[in-house]
């Protein structure tokens, strides 16, 4: 009975792993839905909030209160999902949004650059290999910079996650099976006690968001 967050690089094949896990546990798979719900909480257009979360922070990085409000809105939306039972979250910053919560398995998927280039070449055959490499590096740099500004952390630091799985040798099916095995270890079980903590966490997020909105 797990809640699993999947963090991944773009074009990593991590989405397929997340889909496999959702099928394995017969549970919802959410990503952008969480951002949309957070945007509703703030009365913003979903694309606007998504832009804030996924693009390189500039001046906005220094607007601490604004940043906190967006973060809390997303955290609150995700916390609501967690109270409904099993969940696979493959959106942004799952390792930070649900940090230190019991019953949550935080996973990082690592994929060699060659495989990522191959994944994009399959769907965008008009692009050259160099163009694809430039594109992937740019996205990686943006994401890495964003996480550094938002959380002061290195997005690739394995100590931020419970489990890191590398797809260099492993198939998607093997990665899915190993993560599922990790998620079924007793400490990730959603016991009554853990469920109560998840509800309390969601209530705390709602309360803090409402205080910030009123402030």
């Amino acid at each position: 009975m797990p809640i699993i967050t999947i963090s991944r690089e773009s074009l990593s094949g991590g989405r397929a792993v997340a889909e496999c896990l959702a099928r394995t546990f017969d549970c919802p798979l959410v990503g952008r839905e969480v951002l949309q719900e957070a945007a509703e909480k703030l009365g913003l257009a979903p694309d606007d909030l998504q832009g804030r979360f996924e693009t390189t922070p500039g001046l906005w990085a220094r607007l601490t209160k604004e940043r906190e409000r967006y973060f809390l809105a997303v955290q609150s939306a995700l916390a609501e999902w967690c109270t409904r039972g099993n969940l696979v979250y493959h959106g942004v910053a799952g390792q930070f949004l649900l940090k230190d919560l019991p019953g949550v398995l935080r996973v990082l998927i690592v994929t060699p650059m060659e495989l990522r280039v191959h994944n994009l070449l399959e769907t965008h055959s008009r692009l050259t290999r160099d163009q694809i490499l430039d594109f992937i590096r740019k996205v990686d740099q943006d994401r890495s910079r964003w996480v550094r500004v938002m959380y002061g952390a290195d997005v690739q630091d394995p100590s931020l996650y419970d489990l890191t799985v590398n797809l260099r040798k492993m198939s998607m099916a093997s990665a899915c099976r190993i993560i599922a095995e990790a998620a079924t270890q007793p400490r990730f079980e959603i016991s009554d006690e853990v469920e109560a903590e998840l509800f309390s966490f969601a209530a705390g997020c709602r309360r803090r968001l409402s205080q910030l909105k009123g402030g």
């Binding site: 394995p158 419970d162 890191t164 590398n166 260099r168 190993i178 400490r187």
Partner: peptide, 27 residues
């Protein structure tokens, strides 16, 4: 420290020795 060098990285704050042993055994 580069995670790309390893097939699996396990955080022992999240897994006991027995749990880590079970996950690796299955792998």
């Amino acid at each position: 420290a580069d995670p790309a060098l390893y097939d699996l990285v396990l955080n022992l704050e999240a897994f006991s020795v027995e749990e880590a042993c079970e996950v690796i055994r299955l792998a």
